Computed example of a mutant assay.
Amino acid sequence: MDLRIQRAVYANLCTRPNAVESGPFVLGLDHGTDSPHINYATPAPGAEITAADVADLVTAFAGRPPRLEYVTSCAPGLEKLLFDAGFAVEARNEYLTCTPASLVAQPVPVGFELFVPETDGEIAGVIGVQNEAFGSPGDAGPADIDRQRHVSQRGGVFVAARTTDGRYAGGGGTVVPSDGICEIGGIAVGVAHRGRGLAGAITAGIAGRLFEAGIEVAWLEAGGDDSWRVYERVGFRPAGQRLYIAKY
Rank of each mutant, 00 (worst) to 15 (best):
L198S: 12
V217H: 13
E212W: 02
F211W: 09
I202D: 09
R194G: 07
R229Y: 03
G195L: 03
I206D: 00
A204H: 12
V217C: 15
L220F: 10
G197Q: 11
A218R: 07
G223N: 08
G214V: 14
A213R: 15
G195T: 07
S227D: 06
A201N: 02
V230W: 07
V217E: 15
H193R: 05
R229W: 07
L198E: 05
E221Q: 14
D225K: 08
E232W: 00
I206N: 02
G208P: 11
R229T: 13
G195Y: 09
R233N: 15
I215Y: 03
I202W: 14
G205D: 03
A204D: 11
T203N: 10
A192H: 11
D225G: 00
F211R: 10
L220I: 04
V191T: 13
F211D: 04
D225F: 01
A218Q: 03
G208A: 10
T203M: 11
A201E: 05
G223M: 09
A218L: 12
L220N: 06
Y231V: 15
L198A: 13
V217P: 12
W219T: 00
G224R: 12
R194I: 02
G208K: 06
S227I: 08
G208T: 11
I215R: 03
L220S: 04
I202E: 09
H193D: 14
R194Q: 15
W219C: 13
A204R: 06
G214M: 15
S227Y: 04
L198I: 05
R194C: 04
G235M: 11
E221G: 13
Y231W: 03
G224I: 10
G195K: 06
A192K: 12
V234A: 10
L220P: 00
G214L: 14
E212A: 15
D226V: 10
W228V: 06
V191F: 03
A192T: 07
G200D: 00
W228S: 07
I202N: 11
G208I: 05
I202M: 08
R233D: 09
Y231L: 08
R194S: 10
L210N: 08
T203S: 15
A199W: 03
G200S: 00
E232T: 09
I206K: 02
